[in-house]
Amino acid sequence: MVEPSRESDIDISVVVPVFNESESIPRLLDEIDAALSPGGRSYEIIVVDDGSTDGSWEVLARLAPAHPRLHAIRLASNRGQTPALMAGFDASRGRTVVTLDGDLQNDPADIPRLVDKLDEGFEIVSGWRRQRQDKMISRRLPSIVANRISRLITGVTIHDNGCALKAYRGQVLRAVSLYSDFHRFIVPLAQMGGARVAEVETHHRARCFGTSKYGLERTVKVAADLLTLYMVTRYSQHPLRWFLNLAFPVGVLTVIVTVWSLVVWSSATEATQLLVPLAGVVLLMQSLFAILGYGLFAERIRQLAPRRSRRVRGRILATSQGPDGEATLLIHEQGVQNVGLPVRIASGPS
């Protein structure tokens, strides 16, 4: 559950997952400080060291006394980007959470513009690297393809979901559960849930230090994850429907093949002419019953899912601005939930 009390007086939490970025970290912290200290907003910098082996943690520990806003978290082992971001989100206290990559390719000077845009009334503002400074074939092309496909499947409207520089309303972000490699899908998930998403053009710089941690094979994984996302978000609450959708064409095909094999049977002269259609009927029937049976399994899996969960989760109903401040209303499995401060229930889509 989201604890409103944790939304302390901090305006912005900057969450940066790092893995073997010891050379970039000092400049990164300085640039974030330079970008945020003149603005008058209070902030914290949460750097999550995802099990680095190049002394990144030692750099962070050494810099901590000089950076009063720094909150460095060291994970016990290398877990990947999604768990590292979750660790940062769980520790964050800001009303706004900003994420960026630790490799200096994002320019922290863009953060204030993102936050300003967020304050215009959005739940998420994403950066858009219009001029990307990366290799065309191995980095940009997969990204363009991935963005196209994910836009097609999820209905996301932004151009560059792969840009790590993003600003989120803290209440909304902390209500999201991420697992697997789903950090790429925060925006589609939130947008499907009714969040308003905007984008701001940001600078993108070539890599100064270190090497990229990703390659081309990532595209295949992202494609599989998109399929997962599509299935679980659409059908996790009524999985039997997915199976019935699948069973319908198989059932129709079974009927057709059965009728056809009867026709063949009536005019058959040899045994093999009968055997093939008959085997086809058996195969299709087995498949039909298997699909329906799996559908019942899926329904039981859903029924036995725990009702209480660590996080509030659901569709965003409305954001309201009242005398006591602002709040976000979520619809979730247990009804309408007020995340944050008390407000009058606004009328909205149900």
């Binding site: 000089a66 460095a72 978290i73 016990a76 877990r79």
Partner: peptide, 16 residues
């Protein structure tokens, strides 16, 4: 069933 599982383990923390 498992998406809420915390899948990281914090070794140590340093604050400014």
């Amino acid at each position: 069933h498992f998406r809420d599982q915390v899948n990281y383990r914090v070794q140590e923390e340093v604050r400014g």
